[in-house]
């Protein structure tokens, strides 16, 4: 028998988490009935506004939080049912990085890598080798004698990544790891994560409120709002064909590329306004030119952009076509060419 489908590596089965209220606080349903499965070697992102329950969710993977209902499986181990010892063993296999890096201020970069390994009682030689190997991977070996206060945010996060990798984990959890960084540094950290994923085969689970993070590294994405999972799927599918309002809101105004509503309303008096999305190789096919030839219409380009979803080109084009009799045929023609077409709703 050939098993084609990979068995999921991290699985949330109908997980809920309720924080009991006290005399001064209300009961909070941080996570409600969430089911997710992540395959080995995948980069999975959870996106949502703050307070959506993402932090609680990610902490259930390494048992920093325990679900009130449901189960979380890593491979075939139920995290919620592990004893102290087994949980500690599991945590050795799960690295975690944080928004605030959480490095020891009193220790050098080198010590920041070696102290946790010493506390785990690894042999001294092994500790030395790993510290060197992983500090070199993140490009900070020559800063090993510096203190965290002497490093920039991006460098600090690299140290945190090296610290996580030094445990040689199978899973890396990233808790808003780029949220405190500027865009340039963010992308360098994201490149590092991609690298780790590809070269070391580590499964990465990311929570973030930044769309760019999901766009550039995540194979799959789940959208969360108020503790509930709104939508999940391949990043490219979610981006090109969001089904839920919240998702659309998240991907947001970028769809209309900032075209003012008044201009849109004015244009729509005599034209159809279409949003055309191209994925992958179609992005390079000149469909608009072909449409012009075929139907002798003169589409006017109002806005356009090409983005890359994990290196895959994804183009968006906002065009207007003057009202004409062959409109339906034109739409069909575009659809046959394999692009996604939707008419922009009439703006009041």
């Amino acid at each position: 028998m050939v098993e084609n489908a990979k068995t999921p590596f991290i699985t949330f089965n109908h997980v809920s988490k309720t924080f009991k209220g006290t005399s001064t606080t209300k009961e909070v349903h941080a996570v409600h009935d969430v089911s997710i499965s992540v395959d080995q070697g995948e980069i999975f992102g959870v996106i949502g506004y703050s307070g959506a329950g993402k932090s609680t969710l990610i902490r259930m993977i390494n048992g920093l939080e325990t679900p009130t209902e449901g189960s979380v499986m890593i491979d075939d181990q139920d995290v919620t049912k592990l004893n102290k010892e087994k949980l500690a063993q599991l945590r050795h296999k799960i690295g975690m990085i944080f928004q605030n890096y959480n490095l020891l201020k009193t220790a050098t970069i080198y010590q920041n890598i070696t102290i946790p390994l010493k506390l785990e009682k690894l042999p001294t030689n092994e500790i030395k080798q790993r510290a060197e190997k992983y500090l070199k991977i993140v490009g900070l070996w020559d800063r090993r004698n510096s203190y965290p206060s002497q490093l920039s945010g991006g460098q600090s996060q690299r140290v945190a990544v090296a610290r996580a990798l030094a445990h040689e984990p199978q899973i890396l959890l990233s808790d808003e790891a780029t949220s405190a960084l500027d865009p340039e540094t963010t992308s360098s950290i994201l490149d590092l994560l991609k690298d780790i994923n590809q070269k070391l085969g580590i499964t990465i689970f990311i929570i973030t409120h930044e769309l760019d993070v999901v766009k550039s590294v995540c194979d799959k994405v789940a959208v969360m709002e108020s503790g509930e999972l709104v939508e999940q799927g391949r990043t490219i599918d979610i981006f090109t064909n969001p089904k839920k309002a919240v998702t659309r809101q998240f991907l947001g105004s970028s769809d209309l590329s900032g075209v003012p509503a008044t201009l849109l309303a004015e244009t729509q008096k005599h034209n159809h306004v279409l949003l055309i999305k191209f994925i992958g190789n179609e992005a390079s096919t000149p469909v608009i030119a072909q449409l012009t030839k075929q139907f002798h219409v003169e589409p006017n380009i109002m806005a356009g952009s090409i983005e890359y979803l994990k290196e895959q080109p994804y183009g968006k084009l906002l065009i207007s076509i003057e009202n004409n009799d062959s409109y339906d045929a034109e739409i069909q023609y575009l659809k046959d060419k394999g692009v996604i077409v939707e008419e922009v709703e009439q703006v009041e």
Partner: peptide
């Protein structure tokens, strides 16, 4: 910073 304690807990220490 409580984050440091959380980080070390997450490492199974």
């Amino acid at each position: 910073d409580p984050g440091i304690i959380e980080a070390y807990q997450s490492m199974g220490i």
